[in-house]
Amino acid sequence: MVMSVSLLSSHESVVWSEFHKGHTTSEIAQATRNPNWLHERGLMTEKDLAEALRRIKEIQRRLRRGERDSDRSRMEHELDRVAREWAWSPAYVSRVLNRARKKIDRVLRNHATSHRLDIESVLDYKGLLMGFDYQANAQVYIVFTLDLGVVVWYEHDSYGGKPCSECPKEKACRVTLDTIIREYAITLRPDEVELPMTQQSIAVFRKLAAKEVPRYKRKESD
């Protein structure tokens, strides 16, 4: 079951997406210093992009002409000051990520309640809730996606005893799994790629649950 909702703001959507591409909040903040990066993600208008690039090029031109170290230092400081007019700070990115996480946590729990599930775990940084439906006697995964909204997936062996190829929802299921795989950067082994979706879905959700997110990555120096 897929329930599409507009849950996150534009900033929250971008941060959530970049976070699950493996970028830390500091890396996302650094990326926003580039106006082209913001424009590509719909966060800066064409007009604002043109003005930002004009100002950057002007400062860079003056920077190349600077002969004294003091001139270059002043120009570099000015370039940094200008970039901060549109760039996000790491603290702001962290706040945006936390807002997104709390919204996702709430919507996952609400869906679990409406489906009368016994909640086993909520991994809000991964957009995943795992629960069990005792009436259906089935494991249930509830996943947040940017493209499809909230996905409620009941673990199942077949469609009334028939394989996926004979299920009328085969195409919809394929789109759903592919969306989760893409948005959460999940890599399947060659043998897992060949599995029927009833089994492949289990591999996808287990990999998502086990996925290491940037917030918990250790620095190489640790």
Rank of each mutant, 00 (worst) to 15 (best):
residue 209 A to K: 10
residue 19 F to V: 06
residue 20 H to E: 07
residue 116 R to H: 15
residue 150 V to R: 01
residue 149 G to C: 07
residue 63 L to D: 00
residue 102 K to C: 09
residue 200 Q to G: 04
residue 98 N to G: 04
residue 177 L to Q: 08
residue 10 S to Y: 06
residue 55 R to W: 09
residue 214 P to Y: 14
residue 71 D to A: 05
residue 35 P to D: 04
residue 11 H to M: 13
residue 93 V to W: 01
residue 56 I to V: 11
residue 95 R to T: 05
residue 149 G to Q: 02
residue 65 R to K: 12
residue 15 V to W: 05
residue 168 P to W: 03
residue 33 R to M: 09
residue 167 C to G: 11
residue 183 E to P: 14
residue 189 R to K: 13
residue 48 D to N: 15
residue 112 A to V: 02
residue 169 K to D: 15
residue 36 N to Y: 14
residue 138 A to L: 09
residue 146 L to Y: 10
residue 29 A to V: 10
residue 75 M to C: 06
residue 83 A to F: 01
residue 212 E to D: 10
residue 141 Y to D: 10
residue 189 R to D: 15
residue 33 R to W: 10
residue 16 W to Q: 05
residue 137 N to M: 13
residue 50 A to I: 06
residue 84 R to F: 03
residue 169 K to N: 15
residue 1 M to F: 13
residue 62 R to A: 06
residue 197 M to N: 14
residue 147 D to F: 06
residue 173 C to E: 14
residue 96 V to W: 03
residue 174 R to Y: 11
residue 46 E to Y: 07
residue 157 D to W: 08
residue 142 I to M: 06
residue 48 D to K: 15
residue 154 Y to Q: 04
residue 101 R to F: 05
residue 108 L to I: 06
residue 39 H to D: 08
residue 14 V to T: 13
residue 115 H to N: 14
residue 58 E to Y: 11
residue 84 R to E: 07
residue 45 T to A: 13
residue 1 M to I: 11
residue 160 G to R: 02
residue 143 V to K: 06
residue 124 D to G: 11
residue 14 V to A: 12
residue 63 L to C: 04
residue 70 S to H: 08
residue 117 L to R: 01
residue 129 L to P: 00
residue 82 V to L: 11
residue 102 K to S: 13
residue 115 H to I: 05
residue 211 K to V: 05
residue 180 I to C: 01
residue 7 L to G: 14
residue 191 D to L: 04
residue 72 R to F: 04
residue 122 V to T: 14
residue 21 K to V: 03
residue 2 V to Y: 09
residue 42 G to F: 05
residue 173 C to P: 01
residue 148 L to P: 08
residue 188 L to N: 13
residue 185 A to Y: 11
residue 210 A to T: 06
residue 35 P to C: 04
residue 126 K to P: 02
residue 43 L to D: 01
residue 25 T to E: 12
residue 22 G to V: 13
residue 35 P to N: 01
residue 23 H to R: 14
residue 141 Y to G: 02
residue 187 T to S: 07
residue 92 Y to K: 09
residue 33 R to G: 13
residue 59 I to K: 03
residue 94 S to M: 08
residue 19 F to Y: 15
residue 26 S to K: 15
residue 31 A to H: 11
residue 202 I to C: 08
